[in-house]
């Protein structure tokens, strides 16, 4: 992925999150870090009080400070990002129960932030994915 392409996606993802009414209404304590492993690229997101603090694309080994991770094939991520995903690609629960998405790391952090994370995950349907 070209640097400018990655930056454009980061900018869009940040804007979509920081301007999202739902996350901003309920994200006062939405602070955590997670890794989205999209096979061809990894994206590391740091959230702070409902806002995107930092996004790293393909972080180096010493950058890995995330609390939980979502890992799936690139094709799965592309299906997540469709405007109306087909059955079983419409959420992290459905894809982990029925498809190749794996949820790893400290899942308690995911559960603690589940409402806002679920919304932010669905924003990928608007922003697309960088794979």
């Amino acid at each position: 992925m070209a640097v400018e392409t990655a930056q454009a996606w980061i900018d869009e993802f940040r804007r979509a999150t920081d301007e999202d009414e739902e996350i901003q209404a309920h994200g006062k304590f939405y602070s955590c870090s997670f890794l989205l492993d999209m096979e061809e690229h990894e994206v590391q997101v740091f959230m702070h009080r409902g806002k995107v603090e930092e996004v790293l694309v393909d972080p180096g080994p010493l950058d890995e400070r995330y609390q939980f991770a979502l890992r799936a094939r690139a094709e799965t991520w592309r299906k997540f990002a469709e405007e109306t995903p087909e059955p079983m690609y419409h959420g992290i629960w459905s894809a982990s129960f029925q498809k190749d998405l794996s949820l790893e790391g400290d899942l308690l952090v995911l559960m603690q932030n589940l409402r806002c994370f679920t919304r932010q995950f669905e924003l990928l349907r608007k922003t697309g994915v960088p794979v």
Binding site: P87, H90, G91, W93, S94, L108, M111, Q112
Partner: peptide
């Protein structure tokens, strides 16, 4: 156990945990 884990907001875990049992459309 996640549905009643005392370190998470059980109301939100249950509600958002079943969110994608519903169709996005």
């Amino acid at each position: 156990d996640w549905w009643q884990h005392p370190h998470a907001n059980a109301a939100q875990v249950c509600a958002s945990g079943v969110w994608d049992l519903m169709a996005p459309q």
